[in-house]
Amino acid sequence: MLPTLMLCVFGITTGEFVLAGILPGVAAGLDISIPAAGLLVTAYALGMIAGGPALTALTARYPRKPLIMVLLAVAVAGNVASAVAPTYAVLFATRVVTALVTATFFANAIVIVATAAPEDRKASAVARLALGMNLAMILGAPLGTFVGTHYGWRATFVAIAVCCAVGLALLPRFVPATAGAAGSATAELRVFRAPAVWLAIAVTAVGNAGALVVFTYFAPLATEVGGFADGTVPVLLLVYGVGAAVGNLLGGKLADRSPVRSQLWLLTALAAVLALMWLDTNVVLVFVLGAAGFAIVPGMQARVLTAAGDAPTLAIAVNASAYQVAAAFAGWLGGVALGLGTRSLFLVAAAITVVGIAVAAVRQVRPAVGTRG
């Protein structure tokens, strides 16, 4: 089950990460400006932020296995439509639709995996599923960019559609029908009465913002602060991605043992790494930054699952939206902080992470009923 869902997550999220690499080709192919093409990234993010939770709520009463098959089929169709889109407006619409199903698919996949896992291994199971997203960053985006560069940007969307189609073909056989059935929309909405759910989501939004500031402005930080040549930036991103994959798996194991305490320690480590990079930006710290930045993620997902109790799907979708909001905020704040000098971004990012530690500490004082400390 898990490898099949990882493949699906890899395919569907590659569509998000690859856009940045093929923007010039899209702009040239549709005769639009680069900024206009960049709005496709914004459209995808907005689709996940606003539309993802809405679609998740509307589909809450449907059994999960047939639901994720329909969602993945829409993703296949959306990527095929993107590949043949005759105009910018059509491409814009197809990206929004694909973003809608991405958020809902990921939320349901997390619940399926977590439900099937033993109680003391839920976080590491979620981490292994999220490894599909890490691989989309490490392998999917570069490979998609390579395909787009050599065969045209439309071929990139065809390749993503094929990957998702393979996952769709495997789902009926390898994902059991007993993996879980969604509750009612009312039950899913009711969990938001619990302060623990909002605190868990707040940690995701604030705790990730610092690392996202640095990731958003990774290239200028590497060249202007680290002194690396422009040509080494892709290699450094690969180093970051490998660190992210390692950190993701490690974070899952730590969260299995103690979800709250491990999160506080990991956020503290992330703040420390960001501060160290202000002093010296090197390859080792780039790897450690990727590891620390993604080690915090499985525990965040697991805590939302625990806080939401028996109706976690919508809470997970909103949590994914919180991550996208953090990314948008990080881009804006980083742009403002650049006025203080490029190096200052590391200190700004460290400061935001410290705020995330404070929010996580509040959650430790008021944990969800039944959680482990």
Score class of each variant (00 low, 15 high):
Ile316Gln: 15
Thr371Gly: 12
Gly247Tyr: 02
Leu67Ser: 11
Pro66Gln: 09
Val113Ala: 09
Ala311Gly: 11
Leu279Ala: 13
Arg366Tyr: 07
Lys65Asn: 03
Thr98Gly: 12
Pro220Cys: 09
Asn248Gly: 06
Gly148Thr: 05
Leu238Val: 14
Val242Thr: 06
Asn248Leu: 15
Val84Lys: 04
Ala36Ile: 00
Arg363Phe: 05
Ser258Thr: 12
Thr56Val: 10
Gly183Arg: 12
Gly140Asp: 09
Leu267Trp: 02
Ala269His: 01
Ala99Asp: 00
Ala222Gly: 13
Arg193Gln: 08
Ala244Leu: 11
Phe106Val: 12
Phe157Leu: 07
Val101Cys: 02
Gly25Trp: 01
Leu2Cys: 10
Trp198Ala: 07
Val147Glu: 13
Ile138Ala: 14
Pro195Asn: 10
Thr98His: 15
Leu238Thr: 14
Ala320Pro: 14
Val101Leu: 11
Val235Ala: 06
Ile160Met: 10
Ala117Asn: 07
Leu199Met: 14
Val348Asn: 12
Thr313Ala: 15
Val354Ser: 05
Ala320Asn: 15
Val242Tyr: 02
Thr145Val: 06
Val355Met: 09
Val286Pro: 03
Arg61His: 15
Val9Glu: 07
Gly241His: 02
Gly25Gln: 11
Ala205Asn: 07
Ala200Met: 11
Gly207Pro: 04
Phe218Ser: 01
Leu5Asn: 08
Thr232Pro: 00
Leu129Gln: 02
Ser258Gln: 13
Thr216Tyr: 10
Arg372Phe: 06
Ala114Lys: 10
Val354Met: 05
Leu289Phe: 12
Ala200Ser: 15
Met69Trp: 09
Thr4Gln: 12
Ile34Ser: 06
Gly21Phe: 02
Gly339Ala: 12
Thr98Trp: 13
Trp198Cys: 03
Asn208His: 11
Val206Met: 01
Val158Asp: 10
Gly180Gln: 02
Pro142His: 05
Leu238Gln: 03
Arg173Ser: 08
Phe294Arg: 05
Thr87Lys: 00
Leu250Arg: 05
Asn108Gln: 14
Gly341Cys: 08
Trp198Val: 00
Gly29His: 03
Ala109Asn: 11
Thr4Gly: 14
Leu338His: 09
Arg154Gly: 04
Gly335Lys: 12
Pro24His: 06
Thr42Glu: 08
Ile357Arg: 08
Val84Glu: 07
Val213Tyr: 02
Trp198Tyr: 04
Gly152Met: 11
Pro66Lys: 11
Met300Ser: 09
Gly247Val: 00
Ala245His: 05
Ile34Asn: 04
Ala107Cys: 08
Ile49Gln: 00
Ala255Glu: 01
Ile68Cys: 12
Pro172Trp: 10
Gly38Gln: 09
Arg154Val: 02
Asp310Pro: 02
Ala202Thr: 14
